[in-house]
Design a protein around this nucleic acid. Structure first.
Lengths: 265, 265
DNA sequence: GTACATTACTTTATGCTGTAAGGAGTCGTC
DNA sequence: GACGACTCCTTACAGCATAAAGTAATGTAC
């Protein structure tokens, strides 16, 4: 299923990503195309947003457009490429205006927050990129945005790239937890709280020696951090806090690096 | 496919995770079992290690054990639970001895490195956990190990958890890049270098305005960081450097937090 | 105006997937 | 020896991506 394209396929899919109409509007014989790559990608994104990646099939996309699954193959080489397109088009949604005029740090926090929001709006993004780097304009756009914000730290660019990559990973990892919590609630019908509380109950029964085998984890469980909140679901709040805290830690590290670089002058 | 288990199924799968033999060795009538949950999980892990997650099917696992796919259902409720078991058993491989006697920081680096190695040995781990938290002994073991190392910072435990979570995300994210590079090379037949160089060539052709649209990215491309290495594949080395750098940044941030907490006394 | 090449889209078919249902054979207990 | 529990198998089904071939629509060349 996860297939790495050969040379020729790579060219075709790069063209789709970068050159919406390599071939101009279409002239010559044959029936007019009723669909378009963009329409197909948009429909696919709609499905993934609403029903999750599991509900995305060539059939379901075709159906939404009033066609059969096979009709899509006129426009798109295969499902893999379609998903790549979905991924890249969605990344392009990231806003780009994060002015560093009042310092790089607020801009970094704001851009990371936007990235978090983006992933929360389109949680299926998390199931895509594991496969392989897509290397489309959307991905470049995200890289450019984050890189330019953090370039304002004055650190050498290769180091900035590492910062960006760490930041990206922190966002993705923590938003995953938030997305999981939503999905679990939706699919089990259980509220997130019920689900969360049902597990420890089982655990206590099946592994009564838990607090001696994993003392620190147990201590963590006791030392609060489990206060309930009313409007924001528990797991989601935890994930957001973890994201914000991780980001702060990372940025503190960046500040330390700046001091270290310019300090002993 | 990604199905969240209901209440009853949750119990069954937790039993599998925690109580290898809730039912003692088997007495009573009927033929002796020729397989075991552990054997099945081991076979599945072998397949995933060698041929990737895409090659893992109930049929392929059964075949490796000289049975049909359906035979597995005597031992395991379904594929989802089997994957959960694979995941948790593999996490349990993480070494636990990271003495903090000579400071928390070397221990943190060492444990993160072990986690990196673990993921590189079993890259399919990255395709599993997106689904949902497994909550088995292996996962607890990892949490306990990392938490206890970073508890030595003296920070309050809830904050330590955020550190652990950020660290985990950095490892997972960067190891993904390394794993992708290996997989791409294996599946395309192209060497990693060829693959890596083929793309930019295409890019330059399809998007000649790349350096004006994404100036910072372009500048990054120019400012080196692309020196080749001989023994370690390029992308893999990049990923490892990014991992190490991200980790350092994070730990610098942790140190700053320690100072801040104990500083203004 | 008609033949033809080209294209959009459909139908049909193949080989995968996970797993439900029911049957065959094996064993311990009565 | 009969029974019931148990492992494992065969068969079957719905769903998946997609290959192959067919149908109908359209612009161009004659």
């Amino acid at each position: 299923m996860v297939v790495f394209a050969g040379q020729g396929d790579a060219r075709r899919s790069m063209e789709l990503l970068w050159a919406p109409r390599v071939v101009a509007p279409r002239t010559g014989p044959g029936p007019k195309p009723g669909l378009s790559v963009e329409a197909i990608v948009a429909a696919a994104i709609d499905i993934a947003d609403a029903e999750g990646m599991a509900a995305l099939s060539m059939r379901s996309v075709g159906e939404r457009l009033g066609r059969t699954a096979m009709a899509l193959y006129t426009y798109v080489p295969g499902k893999t490429e379609l998903v790549d397109l979905m991924y890249d088009r969605t990344l392009a949604e990231l806003p780009s205006a994060f002015p560093v005029s009042s310092g790089w740090r607020p801009a970094a926090v704001a851009s990371a927050g936007s990235l978090w929001d983006l992933h929360l709006r389109h949680p299926w993004l998390l199931q895509v990129s594991p496969a392989r780097p897509v290397l489309g304009p959307g991905e470049f756009h995200v890289q450019e945005t984050l890189l330019s914000v953090l370039a304002a730290t004055g650190l050498p660019l290769p180091r900035v790239r590492w910062v960006v990559s760490a930041l990206f990973n922190i966002v993705r990892g923590s938003v995953q937890a938030a997305a999981e919590s939503r999905q679990a609630a939706r699919e089990t019908g259980l509220s997130e709280e019920d689900w969360w509380y049902a597990r420890p109950a089982l655990l206590g029964e099946l592994a009564p020696d838990l607090s001696t085998r994993f003392p620190t984890v147990a201590r963590l469980g006791e030392e609060g951090a489990y206060e309930a909140s009313d409007d924001e679901p528990y797991l989601e709040r935890e994930a957001r806090l973890s994201f914000e805290a991780g980001l702060e830690l990372l940025l503190d590290g960046v500040e330390a690096a700046i001091v270290k670089a310019s300090g002993p002058r």
